[in-house]
C-alpha cells in the first residue's frame, strides 16, 4: 500500500497513465484539511495550533515507533498518519490539554491502526478511535468548551493547554467568561438538548459557535469536501448519503413533533456531522466498496447520528455512529456484492 516516490520519466508514446497512488490521495486530503485547520487557528488562536501540532506529532511518532517494532518499512511518507493526527486534532475541543492530545494520538495509531496491521487493514477510523479513547478516559476535559474569537488568542494560550502530564487541568469557566462576555460553555447541540435554544444557521455556517477545533464552519468543510470529490479522492456518495439520511430522519421527527425536535438544517450544520460525513465516514479503508453498500453505509451513519443525538445520553453522536458504520462495513460489502457478469448466482 505504500506509495511510490514521484519521479519524472520522459518516454515516447504510447503513454500509460500511472494509477493514482495512496500517497497522492492522502496528500490531497491533507491539503484539503489545511484550510479547515487554518480557520480553527484563526478562531481559537495559539492553543488550537499547539493542539493540532501535538496530535499530529503524536500520531507520526507512534507510527514510526510501531514501524520499528514491526520491523516493517517506514510508512510516514504515505501521509496517512498525518491525516489521522490532523483529523484527531480537529475533533478535540481547543482547550484540550496537550498531554491528553498526545495520549489520543498514541491510541489512534497504536489501538486504531497498528494492532490491525497498519494502513488498509484497520477496521475503524483511527482518528475516531483516538477520540473515543480520550472521550472515555477524560470525560470532563473533552466536554470543556471555550469561546471562539477571544481577544488575546494570538498572544496567550488557554490556561488548560499546558497542563502538566497526568495532572488535572484547571477550571477555566471563569477564564472563559472573562475572555468573551456572555459565554455559556455549552455547544449548540447541548444548548438545544438541555435548554431548548436553537443556534441560527448563519452562525453555524460561519463558525461563530462553541465547538471542537475544526467542526465549526460547515461552509468551509463543504468547500474542501467538494474539492476532494471533484478530484475523485473521495466517494461523493458517502457524504451525500450521510447528510441526506440525517436530514430525512430529522425532518421526519420534526414532522411528528415540531415543538420537540429541531429543523433539519440545525441537525446538519451543528456539531461534527459535516466534518464526520466529509472526512471520516469517507475513509477508504473503513467504508464499503460496493456502490450499493456505500449508500447503505452512509444512510446508517446519518440515521444513527440523529438517533444518538435525540435519545442518547450524549449530546453528539457522530463519532459513535461512524464507528458503528465502520464495524458494519465488511458485512455490508458481503451482502451487496454485485453480480458477476454472465454468472447466474449473486456470487460467482
Amino acid at each position: 500500500m505504500t506509495g511510490k516516490s514521484p519521479r519524472i520519466e520522459l518516454r515516447a508514446a504510447p503513454h500509460v497513465k500511472r494509477p493514482v497512488g495512496v500517497e497522492t490521495i492522502m496528500r490531497n486530503v491533507v491539503l484539503a484539511l489545511l484550510p479547515i485547520a487554518a480557520f480553527s487557528v484563526w478562531q481559537y488562536g495559539l492553543s488550537a495550533l499547539a493542539l493540532l501540532v501535538t496530535a499530529t506529532l503524536a500520531c507520526l511518532a507512534t507510527e514510526r515507533w510501531v514501524n520499528r517494532l514491526a520491523g516493517g518499512p517506514n510508512t510516514l511518507s504515505d501521509w496517512s498518519a498525518t491525516i489521522t493526527g490532523l483529523l484527531l486534532g480537529l475533533t478535540l475541543p481547543p482547550s484540550f490539554p496537550l498531554w491528553m492530545a498526545a495520549v489520543a494520538g498514541f491510541a489512534a495509531i497504536a489501538l486504531g491502526k497498528a494492532l490491525f496491521g497498519g494502513l488498509g487493514h484497520n477496521v475503524f477510523n483511527p482518528a475516531l478511535v483516538g477520540r473515543a479513547f480520550v472521550q472515555a478516559a477524560f470525560p470532563v476535559s473533552i466536554t470543556t468548551w471555550v469561546p471562539a474569537y477571544a481577544p488575546d488568542r494570538f498572544t496567550s494560550f488557554i490556561p488548560t493547554t499546558f497542563t502538566l502530564p497526568f495532572m488535572t487541568p484547571p477550571d477555566i469557566s471563569a477564564w472563559a467568561k472573562a475572555a468573551v462576555d456572555g459565554f455559556t460553555g455549552a455547544t449548540p447541540l447541548a444548548r438545544w438538548k438541555f435548554e431548548n435554544l436553537l443556534a441560527t444557521p448563519a452562525d453555524l455556517l460561519s463558525g461563530a459557535v462553541t465547538a471542537s477545533a475544526g467542526e465549526t464552519s460547515a461552509l468551509l468543510i463543504l468547500a474542501c469536501g467538494l474539492y476532494l470529490a471533484a478530484r475523485r479522492f473521495l466517494d461523493w456518495r458517502i457524504p451525500v448519503a450521510v447528510l441526506g439520511a440525517a436530514a430525512l430522519t430529522a425532518w421526519a421527527f420534526q414532522f411528528a413533533g415540531p415543538e420537540r425536535y429541531p429543523d433539519p438544517a440545525f441537525v446538519l450544520l451543528s456539531g461534527g456531522l459535516m466534518l464526520g460525513a466529509v472526512f471520516m465516514a469517507t475513509d477508504m479503508a473503513t467504508s464499503p466498496v460496493t456502490p450499493k453498500g456505500v449508500w447503505i453505509y452512509g444512510a446508517t451513519i446519518g440515521v444513527l447520528t440523529v438517533m444518538i443525538r435525540y435519545f442518547g445520553g450524549l449530546t453528539e453522536g457522530v463519532m459513535y455512529a461512524i464507528l458503528i458504520g465502520n464495524a458494519l462495513a465488511p458485512l455490508i460489502d458481503q451482502y451487496t456484492q454485485p453480480r458477476v457478469f454472465g454468472a447466474r448466482g449473486r456470487r460467482a
Partner: peptide, 20 residues
C-alpha cells in the same frame, strides 16, 4: 501516588480498560 491534581483515566476503571 501523584498528589491531588492527578487526572484519573476514567476509561481504565470502565470495562474497556480491562481489555486494554
Amino acid at each position: 501516588l501523584f498528589g491531588p491534581d492527578f487526572q484519573p483515566w476514567v476509561v481504565m476503571v470502565l470495562p474497556p480498560g480491562g481489555f486494554f
